[in-house]
């Protein structure tokens, strides 16, 4: 009898421990995702009042205007149009640099599986993906700001963002192409289609959703980047479309507002807008990826 009790005791302790760990895992997992809920709700609560049409189409106010408005208990006038336009300009330019190079490299890696050069390129590209964005800012400062535009510029910002995006596009292109059935490519080649047409008319269209997922994720990552732009694009209080001139961006404006006590009212609305765009891009790209599978 005695030994049976001991056995029962031991088992129930094991079962109890099992349950306790399960509860612990669930609680800790919920804590893990709490920041995203807390951050988004903070942005919405603090930021929604400032969002209006003016906020999207007017330039940033100067400190004095903001101070007067705050003193009178009004919303801060003006908006972040200079930042929105600057972000668009730099993201488009960065994509124009990174997408062709990235996709072509991805195709090269796919076509040369197992070869030395392809392995080397893949490893280097993977390591580039881990380079901190601030270092990419330094690089673009050394290359573009000092030698090409001779001053802070949108082009310099775009170059740093492009280097950041490039490895993601290389990787997603290769992964996507690997999933396309070999037979499709062979069928085209058997018909005597030239190689570049196989790429343009078979590989790229078939892998289109995969490629666009990678590109959208890449864009959503560079949209919110601040650190490299501090060293390259610098910022501007007016809308600038000249790529050789200093240019603003939404994250740069958030940084400026953060450093100016009079502008605090604009921080949350700008962050809310930035977050909304980034999250929408994220979710859209996941949707595209989900449909494919």
């Amino acid at each position: 009898m005695k030994s049976t009790f001991a056995w029962k005791d031991h088992t129930s302790r094991r079962l109890l421990k099992d349950k306790a760990v399960l509860v612990g895992v669930v609680v800790l997992s919920l804590i893990t995702i709490s920041p995203i809920v807390l951050i988004i709700s903070k942005l919405v609560v603090e930021g929604y009042q400032q969002i209006s049409l003016d906020f999207l189409i007017e330039n940033t106010p100067d400190t004095f205007e903001a101070m007067t408005a705050v003193a009178n208990g009004e919303n801060i006038p003006g908006g972040i149009a200079n930042g929105i336009v600057g972000t668009l300009l730099m993201v488009v330019l960065a994509s124009a640099i990174a997408i062709p190079i990235g996709v072509l490299t991805g195709i090269y890696l796919y076509e040369n599986q197992g070869k030395f050069m392809a392995n080397l390129t893949r490893n280097i590209s993977d390591i580039l993906q881990g380079v901190p964005s601030i270092v990419l800012g330094l690089i673009s400062y050394l290359w573009v700001v000092k030698h090409i535009t001779n001053g802070f510029s949108a082009l310099a910002g775009s170059v740093s963002l492009a280097i950041m995006m490039l490895p993601m596009i290389v990787r997603s292109t290769e992964e996507t192409l690997k999933m396309i059935p070999q037979t499709l490519k062979e069928a085209a080649l058997a018909l005597g289609v030239p190689y570049h047409k196989v790429i343009l008319k078979v590989l790229v269209p078939t892998g289109f959703s995969g490629l666009s997922t990678g590109i959208l994720l890449g864009i959503s990552r560079i949209l919110g980047e601040t650190a490299p732009l501090l060293l390259t694009a610098l910022g501007s209080s007016i809308i600038n479309l000249d790529i050789t001139q200093p240019t603003s961006a939404v994250p740069l404006l958030i940084w400026e507002f953060y450093n100016d006590p009079n502008m605090i009212g604009l921080i949350w609305s700008s962050s809310l807008l930035l977050m909304a765009i980034v999250l929408i891009l994220n979710i859209v790209s996941k949707q595209i990826a989900g449909k494919r599978n």
């Binding site: 997992s29 893990t32 995702i33 920041p35 995203i36 809920v37 807390l38 951050i39 903070k42 942005l43 959503s220 990552r221 949209l223 919110g224 980047e225 601040t226 650190a227 994250p251 958030i254 940084w255 953060y258 921080i267 949350w268 962050s271 930035l274 977050m275 980034v278 999250l279 994220n282 996941k286």
Partner: peptide, 24 residues
């Protein structure tokens, strides 16, 4: 759903984390 939310954590820009850290 949990996986999606964890992925979204990666999408939040560094500067927004900084603001939240500073003000909350």
């Amino acid at each position: 759903i949990l996986g999606l939310l964890v992925d979204l954590l990666a999408g939040i820009p560094s500067i927004v984390y900084g603001l939240w850290g500073f003000y909350v």
